[in-house]
């Protein structure tokens, strides 16, 4: 666990200006980085011997409508040799939601990025095949964004407060 915290110091030493925030209190260390530096940081974490985070566990989007940079991408990396996990976050503006694709590093990122694009509209630069994956291709919204309600918003017969929502 101690080593696990060292990785944040290593990233901070190498990419100091790109680190927005870091946190070590949660279930795993978490680093928020600028969207332009995601690729270089994860590339370093994967390829550098001192890091060794060579397994991409998960990649998903998140939406905080009230933040200055509302759309986020969250990466979970795993160092299988030393069994350490690391969370990388990056946030982008809603007008220009662009992040570099991780597909050159991880083949697994391909569909996970397509899923994130499908639901949040985050575009991944240099992705080989960035199109919708689970939703129909002619859908013109990004349904997981918070402004899209689950049910028909014009419905009046049902008060959601009474349904645990």
């Amino acid at each position: 666990m101690e080593e696990n915290k060292e990785i944040i110091e290593i990233i901070r030493g190498k990419f100091g200006s790109d680190i927005v925030e870091s946190e070590t209190d949660g279930d795993m260390p978490s680093v928020t980085v600028t969207s332009g530096s995601v690729y270089s940081i994860i590339s370093f974490l994967k390829n550098d011997a001192s890091a060794g985070y060579e397994f991409l566990t998960d990649l998903c989007g998140i939406h905080y409508p009230d933040n200055k940079l509302p759309l986020g991408v969250i990466y979970h990396l795993h160092n299988l040799r030393n069994n350490m996990r690391l969370r990388i976050k990056t946030f982008v503006p809603v007008e220009c939601p662009e992040v570099d694709s991780l597909t050159p590093l991880f083949s697994a990122a391909n569909w996970m990025e397509r899923e994130t694009f499908d639901f949040y509209g985050i575009r991944f630069r240099w992705h080989p095949n960035l199109k919708r994956i689970l939703n129909v291709e002619y859908l013109d919204i990004f349904p997981m964004r918070k402004e899209y309600p689950l049910e028909d918003p014009t419905r009046e017969d049902k008060d959601n407060r009474f349904f645990g929502r």
């Binding site: 566990t57 998960d58 998903c60 939406h63 083949s107 569909w111 996970m112 645990g164 929502r165």
Partner: peptide, 27 residues
């Protein structure tokens, strides 16, 4: 995997399922 973000509300703020089938079917 379950990635759960809670803002203290009655529902999860974000819940992402890491579904192994989805990830390895692309191979």
């Amino acid at each position: 995997g379950f990635y759960l973000v809670s803002d203290g509300g009655r529902t999860p703020y974000r819940l992402h399922f890491r579904r192994p089938s989805f990830i390895y079917y692309q191979a």
